[in-house]
């Protein structure tokens, strides 16, 4: 009998569906109050004040060059750099409310089936949902210096547009 895991299925601004483990999503915030931070990348240019934490908000709508980048709501996600460390937080803008799902091992699929470079970089695994490969987000990957470095490299290349990243 295959193992079942509980998860949240989320739809990021820009339309990409992804999942996080049930315990990793701490709060769903509707119409968050954003504070802009100057000289930051457009895809992460603001923070929310949440439970006395300053939480960066990632807008995948801008990152993947989709038209729909309006921030209706965000999910606050928790992660640890190392098991003994304090929790850290990062938020992702969403265009649909989260849905709780059960994922069985039978649904597991190859990360290469994810049809987006950025999400492939960020995923720790994936599963199929209605025939589509849904990435399971490695939140630590999203917050890592390596990922930021790779994004900066992409954007610093002459003539590089965000369209290329989305394909």
């Amino acid at each position: 009998m295959s193992e079942i895991s509980r998860a949240w299925l989320l739809e990021a601004s820009g339309g990409m569906k992804f999942a996080v483990a049930e315990y990793e999503m701490i709060e769903y915030v509707i119409a968050p109050e954003l504070t802009s931070v100057p000289l930051t990348p457009e895809y992460c240019s603001s923070i929310i004040l949440w439970n006395d934490h300053m939480v960066p908000v990632v807008n995948f709508g801008i990152l993947t060059s989709e038209e729909s980048s309006h921030m209706h709501s965000v999910s606050v996600l928790a992660y640890q750099e190392n098991p003994q460390d304090d929790l850290k937080y990062i938020a992702i803008s969403l265009q649909q409310p989260p849905a709780k799902v059960s994922i069985s091992d039978d649904q597991a699929c190859d990360i290469q089936q994810i049809d987006n470079d950025i999400w492939r970089m960020l995923s720790i695994s994936c599963f199929t949902e209605q025939g589509i490969a849904v990435p399971i987000l490695g939140i630590k990957n999203l917050a890592s210096s390596e990922f930021s470095h790779e994004l900066n490299e992409f954007f610093n290349q002459a003539g590089q547009s965000t369209d290329t990243l989305a394909e």
């Binding site: 931070v37 100057p38 000289l39 930051t40 990348p41 992460c44 240019s45 923070i47 990062i90 917050a143």
Partner: peptide
Amino acid sequence: MQELMPFIMKTDNSPVLKL
């Protein structure tokens, strides 16, 4: 509270060290 500038918000020329 002070927190290091999150990696994902960093740009090469920003003078901001922490929030």
